[in-house]
Design a protein around this nucleic acid. Structure first.
Length: 272
DNA sequence: CGAAAAACCTGGCAGC
DNA sequence: TGCTGCCAGGTTTTTC
């Protein structure tokens, strides 16, 4: 589900709701997420103050007093809810955190691809999970990244999905970025020209920033922190528009399937 | 070795 | 109404 913009929106929501409050109870309702939720979490975070919430790639980190912090990944369907009631009986609620301001923070995840883990200070954020460059810093790494891409035989689409290359791009925005940059998604990395590559980096920043400003994309499962479903729906230009007219040239948008993943593109506009 | 496909899990929806 | 098969925004593991 959530790519960088959606995680950023969630993290901003968590900052508003959590910073300055204290954890009174950390309850694991169901530990069976992608990885087993560490049982120590139930004791570890009691009476800790929440100092900050940060994002790296598609990961969120809740920073607490002391040197033990919370890492989360939303997988495909993970979401947080803030409520004044301890309504943890809802289906697919897996973790419930009681705060000293009377609120409950609940983690809900239908498909259970998300997970939680403990991280110790000091946190090396630039090497966190060996993730690639944050999109907001791309311009400083253009030459580095171009050197790397020049030896890759993978398609540019799958390179963009590689979290250790650039962090945070997922399947929706990969299609959107390549449409914006006018790049054929199945072009191999080693055949991308320098000027094409520059356009990809510019489009990456542009598309992701725009998505953050609009509050992220909502197709089915994504919810922001307040639980409002998709009240800011960003407009997608190619993703999900199979058979519809390209917004630039009226040619029909193509959907291509491989490895259980869809790629949408215009074969007139995306020839570079 | 790198690249492609399968696996993890659940729900929604189209088609019969 | 009910069953089957396919699809879904992520990432790791397995296979080629």
């Amino acid at each position: 589900m959530p790519e960088l913009p959606e995680v950023e929106v969630v993290v901003k929501g968590l900052r508003k709701a959590l910073i300055g409050s204290k954890i009174l109870e950390f309850k694991i309702i169901n530990k069976n997420l992608r990885y087993s939720v560490p049982f120590e979490m139930e004791q570890l975070y009691i009476k800790k103050n929440i100092k900050h919430v940060i994002r790296r790639g598609k990961y969120g980190i809740i920073l607490l007093d002391g040197n033990k912090h919370i890492v989360f990944h939303l997988g495909m369907t993970g979401k947080f809810k803030i409520s004044s009631l301890n309504n943890t009986s809802l289906k697919h609620d897996h973790i419930s955190i009681k705060l000293n301001n009377g609120a409950f923070l609940t983690y809900n995840d239908v498909r259970k691809f998300g997970y939680f883990e403990i991280i110790n200070s000091p946190i090396d954020i630039s090497n966190f999970k060996k993730l690639g460059i944050e999109p907001s810093f791309l311009e400083y790494f253009e030459n580095d990244l171009y050197k790397k891409i020049k030896v890759k035989k993978k398609t540019i689409k799958s390179i963009l999905l590689d979290q250790n290359f650039i962090a945070g791009i997922g399947n929706i925005y990969a299609s959107e970025i390549l449409f914006d940059a006018k790049i054929y998604p199945f072009k191999k990395g080693n055949r991308i020209s320098k000027s094409s590559f520059k356009r990809i980096l510019v489009s990456t920043k542009k598309i992701l920033n725009k998505a953050i400003l609009k509050g992220g994309v909502t197709i089915k499962d994504y919810q922001n922190i307040t639980g409002d479903l998709g009240y800011f729906q960003i407009s997608l230009k190619v993703y999900g528009r199979e058979g519809l007219a390209c917004l630039k040239c009226k040619n029909l948008i193509i959907k291509s399937q491989s490895g259980g993943r869809s790629t949408y593109y215009c074969n007139i506009c995306q020839k570079n």
